[in-house]
Write a protein that binds this DNA or RNA. Structure first.
Length: 292
DNA sequence: AACGCATACAACCGCAAGTCA
DNA sequence: CTGACTTGCGGTTGTATGCGT
């Protein structure tokens, strides 16, 4: 297809940003908002490529960023989300208000990987290290890492809001765990490699497959606010979705396992929360994930 | 004090998906 | 429908800093 380079490299600065460049970028975005990164550098008087500007803003200059060390709670949340989503750093970052995908990715590579290894867990599979080798082909239908499907045996995932946190409780459907190992009952769409639950879920599944308490306590900002750039880039359906979503009270989210099941009122399919946040259609609930 | 190594993190690169004419 | 273009993501690299010898 022939792509043009993202910038004219001969005329752009590279490497660390200076305070002056930062200030120019901040000033420009304050007065014009995000968006059109390609033309932003020229308009802002920066000798940087748009990509570089975007990255600098998102990862470092954005005012809503939470600087400083990760808390123990954040650590655990990242681990849990990674066990479900894999290296989907942007999705994980979306669940940690004030943290960026780059920051989480770096933190994962420098701290959490080691932490898991010390615990005797494989950082990629979240399985015990000595078990990893024998289960390399195993993934799970509950494993959200590979795709936008295959968690249909969870019949109920409630994200209920306490005063300051959400709590995610996933209830497993007994019938889908019939064999006691919770790895049968494949759905039509489940790819063959997604057959075993990851350890996080498998652990609970072993306990009679009754209840999976993921206990995800996340910040009170359930969704990132609609920025100007998002407004510019989003289609109207997505904007509508976000509007509707913001109106959902009292922030209860439910996964619909089967289309025939009557969804709870005022609830949002958690697939939307985890992987369909851009308003993609969900194969589980056959909607964009939003129930009213 | 100087050096080498390890670590942390900012920034870059290439690719894929999305958008639009 | 097609292709040009933009944006966002994930992997990787480069560099500053800290620490031990």
């Amino acid at each position: 297809m022939g792509r043009s380079p993202c910038c004219e490299k001969a005329h752009t600065n590279k490497g660390a940003w200076t305070k002056e460049e930062d200030q120019r970028l901040i000033n420009y975005i304050r007065s014009h908002g995000e968006g059109c990164w390609r033309s932003l550098p020229k308009s802002a008087g920066l000798l940087r490529c748009g990509k570089s500007c975007r990255l600098r803003w998102i990862n470092y200059l954005r005012p809503d960023l939470k600087r400083g060390n990760f808390t123990e709670q954040e650590d655990e949340l990242i681990i849990k989300l990674h066990s479900m989503l894999g290296n989907k750093w942007s999705l994980i970052a979306g669940r940690l208000p004030g943290r960026t995908d780059n920051e989480i990715k770096n933190y994962w590579n420098t701290h959490i990987k080691r932490k898991l290894i010390v615990r005797g867990l494989d950082p990629q599979t979240h399985r015990p290290l000595n078990a990893t080798a024998s289960t390399t082909t195993a993934n799970s239908k509950f494993d959200f890492r590979n795709a936008s499907h295959s968690y249909s045996t969870l019949t109920d995932i409630d994200l209920t809001m306490n005063q300051n946190t959400f709590k995610l409780v996933a209830m497993a459907d007994d019938s889908s765990f019939d064999d006691g190992k919770c790895n049968s009952g494949t759905t039509e769409e489940a790819p063959p490699q997604l057959l075993q639950p990851p350890p996080l879920l498998a652990h609970h599944a072993d306990q009679n497959c009754q209840s999976i308490n993921l206990d995800l306590s996340i910040g009170l900002v359930p969704f990132q606010s609609l920025t100007r750039s998002e407004s510019a880039n989003s289609n109207s359906a997505e904007i509508e979705l976000k509007k509707e979503q913001e109106e959902v009270v009292p922030y209860q989210f439910v996964v619909a396992a089967r289309p025939s099941e009557t969804p709870a009122p005022q609830a949002v399919c958690v697939c939307w929360q985890l992987a369909f946040q851009r308003g993609q259609l969900c194969s589980n609930c056959s909607t964009n994930g939003l129930y009213r």
